[in-house]
Simulated assay, not measured.
Amino acid sequence: MDVCDVAGSGGIVGDRRSLGHLDGVSAGWAGLARCMEQLNSSETVSELRLEQVSVVSHLGHTRLLDRISFAVDRPGCKIGIVGASGAGKTTLLRLLNRLAEPSEGQIFWRGQPLSHYPVPSLRQQVMLVPQEPQLLGMTVEQALAYPLQLQGFPPAEVAARIERWEQRLDIPEEWRSRSALELSAGQRQWVSLARGFVAQPQLLLLDEPASSLDPGKTELLIRVLGQIGGTVAIVSHQLAMIQKLCDRILWIDRGQLRQDKTRLEMDWEEVQSVLSKKSAAAVSDWNDFD
């Protein structure tokens, strides 16, 4: 079975949780017993589920998202979200950690309505890394430490985790004392991504994560994302990155879920053709204003 068992159109597929790290033989048997209980249970709980979710503009004339339904069965799925500019991709990400609220429909996270989670608690589990990185006036070191400090981690553990991720992401030690103004656009984006990795949320939401990265950093990002165990949802116009990394593809078109397929099922030539035509049309419309 693929790591990303799914059900579209609001369906649900049985949840098989990872055993995680086993601590001794007794813990191993206990974990196995819990896993078997879930496999044999008639109750099915998805990791993430959207049911007929719509978002209407403040004026009420436009549906930014229109009756979106899909479900992700279990942790570890890498979800690519593709579509033309303005299709509703970022709006979808913002819904998942309650930076926006649905006008209609419901979102469930690990079996509970998303609205039942206090926002601070939810955002420790579901973290969004926006396209435009913000260090909030902090130095790089302070920005990396901030999400862990909010969760009450002791200073020694904060420092140790930051050091591990600095090494893994090739972040130079001299960056630590720098502010956002002392970093390039690509460096700011890399620090923002590092903050997401340091926090280790259960669901990491990435909006155009490679838009300012050079090819070398983009390849490193793909490798790291492929190694982490949590669920990741990525919005990107870089189809090559989505193809390399993601198990599951959601194609959003004018607020609707046009296709929901695995990477191998997706017709990438069709995706590229449609998105290229829409991009060209958008440029043409913009030029009409000149």
Score class of each variant (00 low, 15 high):
198 V>F: 12
198 V>G: 04
198 V>K: 10
199 A>M: 03
200 Q>M: 15
200 Q>N: 09
201 P>D: 01
201 P>N: 05
202 Q>A: 13
203 L>E: 09
204 L>N: 12
204 L>T: 11
205 L>I: 07
206 L>E: 01
206 L>W: 04
207 D>A: 12
207 D>N: 08
208 E>T: 10
208 E>G: 09
212 S>P: 07
212 S>L: 00
213 L>T: 15
214 D>I: 00
215 P>R: 05
216 G>T: 07
216 G>S: 09
216 G>N: 13
217 K>E: 00
217 K>L: 01
218 T>M: 01
218 T>L: 02
219 E>W: 05
220 L>F: 02
220 L>S: 05
220 L>A: 02
220 L>W: 06
220 L>N: 04
222 I>F: 07
222 I>C: 08
224 V>D: 00
228 I>C: 10
228 I>T: 08
229 G>A: 13
230 G>E: 11
231 T>R: 04
231 T>V: 12
232 V>P: 08
232 V>L: 05
232 V>K: 09
233 A>Q: 06
233 A>I: 14
234 I>K: 02
234 I>M: 13
235 V>W: 01
235 V>S: 03
236 S>D: 06
237 H>F: 08
237 H>C: 05
237 H>M: 08
239 L>A: 04
239 L>G: 05
240 A>V: 03
241 M>R: 14
241 M>W: 11
242 I>E: 01
242 I>F: 02
243 Q>I: 04
243 Q>H: 08
244 K>P: 10
244 K>I: 00
244 K>Q: 15
247 D>Y: 03
247 D>Q: 09
